[in-house]
Amino acid sequence: MKKEDFKFKYFDTTADIGIEVNTDNLNDAYIQSSLATLNLITDIEKIKPKIIKDILIESEDEYGLLYDWITEILILLNSEDFMASEYDINIKRENNSYIISGTVSGDIYNTNIYNYKTEVKAITYHKMEIEKEDNNYKIRFIVDI
């Protein structure tokens, strides 16, 4: 993935960092949310897609799914040193749940190879927004650093 493909930007909050994503579909909105989060930690475009991991996350609504999605990406980093850089995911609504399934590709995060910017501890529900207007999805959330 190249920097020019990124569809996210950052906004200021007190002691945390806000992320805003604007794109034309929900799958890409969640992918961009993950890229934006991990790009706070390192230059995500430098991560090579050497390892593939399966993903399956189910949640009660789009907000819970976003929270669980970013949490899962951070858990992979913190427990397996895995940094995802490419995504092949599908989000669907099934019964009363939202489900993300697919794969993420990336590499073992090694600060000797990939630079280190800052630590992202967690996503928060504080000021989280997910809006769809016409053919545009807008997601805003805050991560604790």
Rank of each mutant, 00 (worst) to 15 (best):
I70K: 01
L35K: 13
T103K: 15
Y30P: 08
T23K: 03
A29H: 06
D16S: 15
Q32F: 04
K48T: 11
Y63D: 11
Y67M: 10
I31Y: 12
E80N: 11
I73D: 01
L26Y: 06
K2S: 06
L74I: 10
L76K: 15
I41G: 08
E94A: 03
I51R: 03
G102Q: 09
A84N: 11
D61W: 03
D16N: 14
G102E: 10
N25Q: 04
E80F: 10
S97G: 00
I75H: 11
N27D: 15
N27F: 11
N95G: 03
I44V: 09
E58A: 13
K48F: 12
L74H: 07
Y87D: 07
L38Q: 09
T23W: 06
L35I: 10
I55M: 14
L74F: 03
I31Q: 12
I55V: 15
N25A: 04
I55P: 09
A29V: 02
D88V: 03
D28A: 07
F8M: 04
D5W: 04
E86A: 04
S79E: 14
K92F: 11
Y10I: 11
S59R: 07
N22Q: 14
D16I: 12
L77G: 01
K2Y: 04
S97K: 13
D28Q: 14
I91Q: 01
I100L: 04
G102F: 08
E58S: 12
E62K: 15
K50P: 00
D81F: 05
I17K: 13
D81R: 09
Y87E: 01
I31T: 14
S59N: 12
E58F: 00
S79F: 07
S59L: 00
E58G: 11
I17E: 06
N78C: 06
L26C: 07
I99P: 02
T103P: 07
D5R: 12
E4M: 07
T14Q: 12
Y10P: 05
N90P: 00
T23D: 10
T42V: 09
G102C: 07
I89W: 01
F8C: 06
D16L: 02
N96D: 14
N22H: 13
D24Q: 15
T103V: 14
I17P: 06
D43C: 08
K92C: 04
E62F: 06
I75W: 12
A15T: 12
N27V: 00
I19T: 03
K7D: 05
L66Q: 05
S97I: 00
D43S: 13
T103Y: 13
D68A: 12
S79Q: 12
V21K: 08
I73P: 01
G18A: 03
L77N: 01
